[in-house]
Amino acid sequence: MATSPAERPRVVLRADGGRAAGLGHARRCRALAEALAPWAECRVLVEEGAGLAGALAAARELAAAALVVDSYRVSARELAAARAAVRLTVRVDDAGRFPLPADVVVNPALGVRPPADPGATQYLLGPRYALLAGAFAAAPARSVVARVGRVLVALGGATPAALMGRVARAVREALPGAALDAVAGPAGDAADAVRAALADLGDVTVHAAPASLRPLMLRADLAVSAGGVTALELAATATPAVGVCLAANQRRNLLGLADEGALVAAGDADDPGLPAAVRAAVAALAVDPERRRRLGARGRALVDGLGAARVADAMRARLAAPAAVGGAAC
């Protein structure tokens, strides 16, 4: 139920952005802001620089009750100090090195465990807390076909054209007759550069910075994906996927999904053997519809798309507590 404007707490969400960071941090913060929207006023800040100065200035301006930080560029000391400025601090984490100085810690990777002594910090861990846009909560309408006719290739928001070329070529070699949907993210190489890298593959559509990947996922019979937020979205849409690790912070998530039978991990982006591994994985899945069905079903069982709502509910409960959770009163 929505609250009246006078009752709505204000929340500042600070995410890393830019080519080096990709889009995952911003997408998670926007997904959480969407879940908070029925009862809170949110401001999302996407910053390429380090530190919390901008977020704290926004928190003071808004008299914010809560600060959400999804950043590798904010130190533990800065985060701890921020607890004096707002009632509630939330840290969105990928590393799993606990404890962390926040009131709530969110890490959606499989296999992470809270510290032996969590203190007053609430740890929301595992794919039940994956911060995905609300559309991913809807049950996907998917039928598994005998023949793979369409493959989605999505390699993060900062798509490198050369890597896209290598991976898409491997898919084409495995499936000469399939249609390919390739995504060019807004923080990477230009869409024209991605098109040039794929020009000789035939039957490839390049999608430049689509607002959502969900429609492309639902059309795809198979996907090749980076190991961050997109891999979790593919799981939520029951899309069988081959995963590519683009950065160290994706490895835990990617391997956790692979260990649970929710995707096939092909290897790291900088591995010279990656194209051969992608080609082999795609070829094997193409002739095994039952395995594709199992991958999709397991992914959806793990990631139901309600993670942002669960985190928003936890934040609301903490803010409703009579005593201040962090430092300053609201």
Rank of each mutant, 00 (worst) to 15 (best):
A26E: 14
R27H: 15
R27I: 14
R27Q: 15
R28A: 07
R28E: 07
R28K: 01
C29P: 14
R30C: 09
R30A: 09
R30M: 12
A31Q: 05
L32K: 11
A33P: 07
A33R: 04
A33I: 09
E34C: 04
L36R: 04
A37W: 03
A37M: 02
P38R: 07
P38Y: 03
P38C: 02
W39D: 15
A40R: 09
A40E: 13
A40G: 13
E41T: 12
V44Y: 13
V46K: 00
E47M: 11
G49F: 10
G49L: 12
A50F: 13
G51F: 07
A53N: 09
E61H: 09
E61G: 10
L62N: 01
L62D: 05
A64F: 01
A65V: 03
A65Y: 09
L67I: 02
V68P: 05
D70I: 12
S71G: 04
R73K: 11
V74I: 02
A76G: 12
A76Q: 13
A76C: 03
E78P: 07
L79C: 00
A80Y: 13
A81Q: 15
A81C: 13
A82D: 02
A85Y: 13
A85C: 13
A85T: 14
T89H: 02
V90F: 05
R91V: 09
V92G: 11
V92H: 09
D94K: 10
D94P: 04
A95S: 14
G96A: 08
R97P: 11
F98V: 02
P99K: 00
P99I: 00
P99F: 07
P99A: 00
P99M: 05
L100D: 02
L100W: 03
P101W: 03
P101Y: 00
A102I: 06
A102T: 02
A102S: 04
D103M: 05
V105I: 03
V105R: 00
N107W: 11
N107V: 07
A109Q: 10
L110S: 11
G111F: 07
G111K: 06
G111Q: 01
V112E: 08
P114S: 01
P114D: 06
A116W: 11
A116M: 10
P118H: 04
P118A: 09
T121K: 07
Y123W: 05
L124A: 03
L124F: 09
P127A: 03
P127N: 03
A130N: 08
A130E: 10
A130Q: 01
A133F: 12
A133D: 15
A133R: 15
G134N: 13
G134D: 13
F136A: 12
A137D: 14
A138V: 14
A138Y: 10
A138P: 10
A138D: 15
P140N: 08
P140M: 04
R142N: 11
S143P: 14
V145A: 15
